[in-house]
Design a protein around this nucleic acid. Structure first.
Length: 554
DNA sequence: TACCCCAGCGCG
DNA sequence: AAAGCGCGCTGGGGTA
């Protein structure tokens, strides 16, 4: 049974609907302040709550101590159905753009008011969630791959629940450990506007080596000018380019860049802004990337540098269980293509397996070659190794090559479960058109070819990255339910997810449950593989570490 | 003052 | 080791 939540005069309307979206008698209006209790009361019936946007409804429920098992996030589902090649003929996909195509609402920060958006829905006023749900079910029903797409919508919605729960729980963060790490690397916290002592010292060495006492090291133009003045003819000030040079300034300059980056991105200011009462609460954005990956806004949660991961520590008597899907994307490609030889190579360490197949000589080569295949390397080591990979694993490589060719023609490609790539924009088509015109110049043709190839690299990667994102969502959704079933009590008293990074998850759990959590993590990974690829012989091994600090994982 | 873009670098 | 996918964030430097 589905129950649709919608704003109504005097509160929130709860409307039961059937699987096809038809309204079932029994709709009631619940006063806003009684909504959480009402949902908690009905939750044992395992309804699937249907709402416009999880980020609007769920944080308040969690704050009231209510965890729900299932939902339909209409906005996220709409985006998938609007763009999927599998529902291209549906009414939904052909309707004019409307409120359901609007971007996500910002997560309410610390607004104390209860469901305060209910009285003033910003753009959702004209959007009837019941009608939208009916359109979505019709689109799904009309699709030839309703099962896959349905799984994708369920996984996407579960991801939205998880994102809200992870923000609610927060990533356990030790302000003291973070401060110690910063102090060790940079020196004690300085007054605002001043550089920490160690940063200032290394900057002094840079200025001396360049004989430029006024140098602003944070200005690329200023820095480049100073480098050229001492005869270093660089084209940029990027670290990897500077590393190739031998000069007394290089070592302190690279050191300065490393430290100033840490200070700017994850220093004391970041700590003050983002960590509160021992928890880091980033704003996760499910579906924030076209491929289906999550994004974040604020706090840079998906870029936590290794330098400061030591500040992530569990509560007293608790553990962190950090799990990483080993070589996820190559394994996804194996599943997508059904390449038996690659599946065999992936029985253990996939890259060692590729070496054992005779395709390349070393593990490092295998890794670079696989990355090249999935990203579309044309030159360098990756490009050089491609032909050998193609000979060894023709089916897998044919899969990504086909996706690349489709993209080069401006066509749409889709993931395993049916998320489709966007179409190239107007300027892309203009460039292609100009190259085909009678007056086309060499430059026109080169530009068109370059853009065509570039879009091909995007679609090539899209099917792999997007399907990997689907696998990760299924992994997490399954794990979420397994963790909930492991213990009793409130959400935060049970083992729960606290972090997610594309192919890596972190669970915060009471120490005595840590070993069992590790088992559930592995089992959920196996489930996800079967859900998406059925009986295919591709495995998804995960490395699991039970640790007292994120820095101790892998 | 507000905004935009770029260069650079962190993560997968 | 350096060229190939997807992001977010910062400070500099320009424009309105």
């Amino acid at each position: 049974m589905h129950v649709v939540l919608s704003s109504a005069p005097g509160g929130v309307l709860l409307t039961p609907v059937a699987d096809d979206g038809a309204v079932v008698p029994g709709a009631v209006t619940i006063a806003t302040h009684e909504l959480s209790a009402e949902i908690a009361r009905r939750e044992p019936d395992r309804p699937r709550w249907v709402w416009d946007d999880t980020a609007r409804w769920y944080p308040q429920l969690l704050a009231d101590g209510v965890r729900v098992e299932r939902c339909v996030d209409l906005r996220l589902s709409h985006v998938i159905l609007r763009n999927s090649a599998l529902t291209a003929g549906s009414t939904l996909a052909n309707a004019p753009y409307g409120p359901w195509d609007a971007p996500a609402v910002a997560v309410q920060q610390h607004s104390g008011t209860l469901f305060d958006f209910v009285d003033e829905p910003p753009q959702g006023a004209t959007a009837d969630p019941i009608e939208e749900f009916r359109l979505q079910r019709a689109a799904l029903e009309s699709s030839a791959s309703a099962n896959s797409l349905g799984l994708l919508l369920a996984a996407e919605s579960a991801g939205a629940l998880i994102a809200a729960e992870m923000r609610f729980a927060g990533l356990p963060w030790s302000v003291q450990r973070h401060d110690e790490l910063l102090t060790g690397l940079l020196g004690p916290r300085p007054r605002t506007g001043e550089r920490p002592a160690k940063l200032e010292a290394v900057l002094g060495r840079v200025r001396a080596a360049l004989d430029a006492p006024e140098l602003n090291p944070d200005s690329p133009t200023d820095l480049m000018r100073a480098l050229r003045r001492v005869g270093l003819l660089v084209n940029s000030t990027r670290s990897w380019e500077l590393k190739k040079i031998e000069h007394p300034v290089i070592e302190p300059l690279l050191e300065y860049k490393k430290l100033s980056r840490l200070l700017a991105a994850n220093g004391w200011y970041w700590l003050d802004t983002w960590v509160d009462e021992g928890r880091f609460r980033p704003d996760y954005v499910p579906g924030g990337v076209v491929t289906g990956r999550w994004a974040t806004s604020g706090g840079g949660a998906l870029q936590l540098p290794k330098q400061i991961r030591g500040a992530v520590v569990p509560d007293e008597g608790w553990k962190l269980i950090v799990a990483d899907a080993a070589q996820l994307e190559p394994r996804i490609l194996t599943g997508l293509s059904g390449d038996q030889k690659m599946a065999e190579a992936g029985r253990g360490d996939l890259y060692e397996g590729i070496v054992a197949s005779g395709a390349v000589a070393t593990r490092a080569e295998a890794k670079v070659a696989m990355l090249g295949a999935m990203y579309g390397a044309t030159s360098g080591e990756g490009g050089r190794l491609m032909p050998r990979l193609t000979r060894a694993f023709p089916r897998a490589i044919a899969m990504v090559e086909a996706a690349a060719r489709a993209g080069e023609r401006g066509e749409v490609v889709s993931t395993r479960l049916g998320r489709s790539s966007p179409r190239p924009g107007e300027s892309w088509h203009e460039a292609q058109g100009e190259a085909n015109g009678v007056q086309a110049t060499d430059l026109d043709e080169r530009r068109a070819l370059s853009q065509s190839r570039s879009w091909g690299r995007f679609t090539r990667n899209f099917i792999v990255q997007g399907t990997a994102a689907e696998w990760a969502l299924c992994w997490m959704a399954g794990l979420r339910n397994r963790l909930w079933a492991m213990a009793d009590g409130d959400f935060a008293d049970r083992p729960h997810l606290v972090f997610f990074l594309h192919d890596e998850v972190m669970v915060h759990a009471p120490a005595h449950l840590a070993d069992r959590v590790a088992e559930e993590v592995r089992a959920a990974a196996a489930d996800a593989g079967r859900l998406i690829f059925g009986a295919l012989p591709v495995g998804f091994p995960v490395t699991v570490a039970i640790v007292d600090s994120y820095a101790d994982a892998k």
